[in-house]
């Protein structure tokens, strides 16, 4: 199971990185979303993996680590805010200049 999680993190990171390196805004946003998943799962997994041991206090013997969960919970919500801002900026740039490239035009074509 540990291998599955680790490899899932790896796959998410690889796919995210590849998309982040694309030239248009939309795939880059997709890439950052994938990277967000990867980072969140990575952080979450730092509490190690435990099944059937939620951090809800009962008579149970063991609980999984609650701290990474609390960190990741806010991270998920904030990453929504971050995605929304990036999308808004991308949209504004596209609507304003009719261009959704993430890179500036090479010098010469466009006056700074």
């Amino acid at each position: 199971m540990e291998f599955l999680v680790a490899s899932a993190i790896g796959v998410l990171t690889a796919a995210g990185l590849y998309l982040v390196l694309r030239l248009r805004t939309f795939p880059v946003i997709m890439g950052t979303s994938l990277l967000t998943y990867a980072v969140n799962v990575f952080l979450f997994a730092s509490g190690r993996l435990a099944t059937g041991a939620p951090p809800i206090l009962t008579d149970a013997e063991r609980y999984t680590d609650p701290l990474p969960q609390a960190l990741v919970l806010t991270a998920i919500v904030i990453s929504f805010g971050m995605t929304a801002v990036v999308v808004m900026i991308a949209l504004g740039a596209y609507l304003g200049a009719d261009d959704d490239h993430v890179d500036d035009a090479p010098a010469g074509e466009d006056a700074r």
């Binding site: 999680v5 680790a6 796919a15 590849y18 390196l21 990575f42 190690r48």
Partner: peptide
């Protein structure tokens, strides 16, 4: 693709290691 695969392998190794 090379950068992406390298990055993926690295995070995977790291996660695998500490898990």
């Amino acid at each position: 693709g090379a950068i992406a695969v390298a990055g993926g392998l690295a995070t995977m190794a790291l996660a695998w290691h500490y898990l």
